[in-house]
Amino acid sequence: MINPRQADATEAKIVIVIDDDPSVRKSLTNLLQSVGLDARTFASIEEFLRWPLPDAAVCMVLDIRMPGRNGLDFQQDLASSDGAVPIIFITAHGDIPMSVRAMKAGAIEFLTKPFRDQDLLDAIQLGLELSRSRREEIAAASLLMSRYESLSGRERQVMEFVVSGQLTKQIAAKLGLSEITVKVCRANLMKKMCAGSMLELGKMSERLARLRGAQPE
């Protein structure tokens, strides 16, 4: 059983609640505040969309059936955007096909009202941890790309040969450079990339290849 109070209190964490029932919003706000979580409530998806997503670990407690756009369709919209948010569905009128669709699309949990408070809190903690991990991955990828972009064109060429296992004299011959120049370029790129070893540089190169491959043309 997971208690949100066990989480790192120094990191901002916000739980978004979208439900058209005022009593549900009030009840969930009281529950979340009782365990030290910041709750932001909205009566509709449209109301939520007018609110700028904060720079924090977030997860969403989302009712499926509401006036206007339903929760399942909104889940698809979020999944296709850059602001993906872990979702926990709650509903008073759920069925198996609905729950299967939600879970296949990546929902953390599908809870039918009335549900146990602890079941919801456990799902929320999982969602917040997933959000935190995603934020760390995005930050790490951004830092790696920034370091690579700081390299000169020649340093990038040398890096490509270095991670492929080429020796200094081989790189010098292929690029028409002196061995001393290659050594200087290698030392500079290792420093700029903050790589402690050739093995680490190789892993960075693989990660960069994946990141560049994921970017749209």
Rank of each mutant, 00 (worst) to 15 (best):
G68D: 03
T29S: 09
N30L: 15
P54D: 09
E47W: 02
D55H: 11
K26P: 00
L32I: 07
L49W: 00
L49Q: 10
V61Q: 08
G36L: 01
A57V: 05
L28Q: 07
M60G: 11
G36C: 00
S23M: 15
S23C: 07
M66E: 04
D63Q: 11
C59T: 13
A56I: 06
L49T: 14
T29Q: 12
D55A: 13
I45Y: 05
R65H: 15
E46P: 07
S34A: 15
G36P: 00
D38H: 04
G68T: 04
S44R: 04
L53S: 10
L62T: 04
R25I: 07
R25N: 12
R65I: 14
F42L: 01
L62W: 06
V35S: 04
A39C: 09
P54E: 09
L31P: 12
V58I: 13
L32P: 07
P52Y: 10
G68R: 10
L28Y: 08
A43Y: 03
S44A: 01
S27H: 13
Q33A: 07
L28K: 11
T41M: 00
L28V: 03
T41C: 11
S34N: 10
L31T: 13
L32S: 10
A56Y: 02
P52A: 12
A43F: 03
V24N: 14
S27Y: 12
V58G: 02
R50P: 00
L62C: 08
A43N: 15
E46T: 12
S27D: 14
I45R: 03
D38W: 02
V24E: 10
D55S: 10
V58H: 03
D38R: 05
R65A: 07
L37N: 04
I64F: 05
V35T: 11
G36D: 00
K26F: 08
I64A: 05
R65G: 04
R40G: 04
R50I: 05
R65K: 09
F42V: 02
S23I: 13
M66Y: 05
P67R: 13
E47A: 15
P52W: 06
A56P: 09
P54T: 00
D63W: 11
V58F: 01
F42M: 01
R65Q: 13
V35L: 03
M66C: 08
T29L: 00
C59S: 04
G68Q: 11
S44H: 03
L31E: 09
R25K: 10
D38Q: 10
F48D: 05
V58P: 00
M66T: 05
K26W: 02
R50S: 09
C59H: 02
L28H: 06
S44T: 10
S27M: 15
R25D: 06
W51Y: 15
D38M: 08
D63E: 05
V61C: 01
